[in-house]
């Protein structure tokens, strides 16, 4: 950031100044779309204990984007192609549809190592590209075009619609696969469908936070929400709220400081998680009901 974007004492005028830039408005639009999507998909991912699969799918975005740039295509195509592809490979080869199995974790590790190696190859093939590696791995919010925002919105709408369609059976299959299967829920098919949706969501998030820091939006808000509440609907809402807030503050902080966006979003999300853990310790003895919380906090 240049020197004239430092914070003044008037926060309102600072924000107004920031939003006069088209690139920042686009960044906020893209960030909000990505945050909502990541929080919802991440909530299911945490419930299914598939964080490792999510991480691997995210890392597949790195060689994807590197290959796309090397071939002169938009990085977005690389992210989507490789993330969804890696998700499909994991889904097709893992036998257990319930998620989080031992076999799946070994397989996921194999896929992850190979994708990272491919990423390194593409980076070394394209010598002048080395400067871009940082933003592929750790995120960037500069240069988000209105066209990209439209694509992000379209993909997010499609993924969220699909999640809304399969939401309840997906929870059933995640929590209780044997009973769900006996009730006629297509457990394995849902597992595959979810991984593909996870791939698409990860590809979106990667474009803001980079491949290494997708968890800032995918895992942290969901994990924080699940620490705070055991109610599914409330947890989903909290995850979305936390993800949106940390993204907004992260974008603002990155604009007014010399440090990268990935650092800020991750740090804010981490702060939320630490607070949620403290809250969990404080309320552990009493439960998380409204009265219990009040009692634990000393308000009655």
């Amino acid at each position: 950031m240049s020197a004239d974007t430092g914070l003044s004492w008037n926060l309102v005028s600072d924000v107004q100044q920031m939003w006069q830039l088209d690139s920042m408005v686009n960044a906020y639009r893209a960030g909000t779309i990505v945050a909502v999507l990541a929080a919802v998909v991440g909530w299911f991912m945490v419930l299914r204990r598939q964080a490792f699969a999510g991480h691997t799918v995210a890392l597949a975005g790195f060689p994807g984007a590197a290959a796309a740039v090397y071939l002169g295509l938009s990085a977005s195509w690389g992210y989507f192609g490789f993330c969804v592809g890696a998700a499909a490979v994991i889904a097709a080869l893992a036998r257990d549809g319930a998620g989080g199995g031992a076999e799946e974790s070994a397989l996921t590790g194999v896929v992850q190592a190979f994708t990272l190696a491919c990423g390194m190859l593409f980076v070394s093939l394209y010598k002048g590209f080395l400067n871009g590696t940082d933003s592929l791995l750790f995120g960037s919010f500069l240069g988000v075009t209105p066209g990209q925002v439209a694509v992000l919105a379209g993909v997010a709408a499609a993924v969220l619609a699909a999640i809304a369609l399969i939401g309840r059976p997906l929870v059933f299959a995640s929590v209780d696969p044997a009973v769900a299967a006996a009730r006629g829920v297509p457990v394995r098919l849902l597992g595959v469908a979810f991984l593909v949706l996870l791939g698409a969501a990860t590809a979106e998030v990667s474009q803001i936070t980079g491949s290494l820091l997708v968890f800032a939006l995918l895992v942290m808000p969901a994990a924080t929400a699940q620490r705070l509440t055991v109610r599914p609907a409330l947890g989903l809402g909290l995850a979305v709220a936390i993800a949106a807030l940390v993204t907004w503050f992260g974008l603002g902080a990155a604009y007014f400081s010399p440090y990268p966006i990935g650092f800020w979003i991750t740090t804010f999300a981490f702060g939320c998680y630490v607070l949620a853990q403290l809250f969990g310790f404080a309320t552990r003895r009493h439960g998380t009901g409204r009265r219990h919380v009040a009692r634990a906090l000393g308000v009655s």
């Binding site: 419930l47 999640i163 809304a164 369609l165 399969i166 939401g167 309840r168 059976p169 929870v171 059933f172 929590v175 209780d176 009973v179 769900a180 009730r183 006629g184 829920v185 699940q226 620490r227 055991v230 109610r231 599914p232 947890g235």
Partner: peptide
């Protein structure tokens, strides 16, 4: 696993229905 007993019972009732 952060899900309530009531949620697990509820899934037995309508967990196989599509939608949310």
């Amino acid at each position: 696993l952060r899900i309530r007993g009531t949620d697990v019972v509820r899934l037995g009732l309508d967990g196989d229905r599509w939608g949310i």
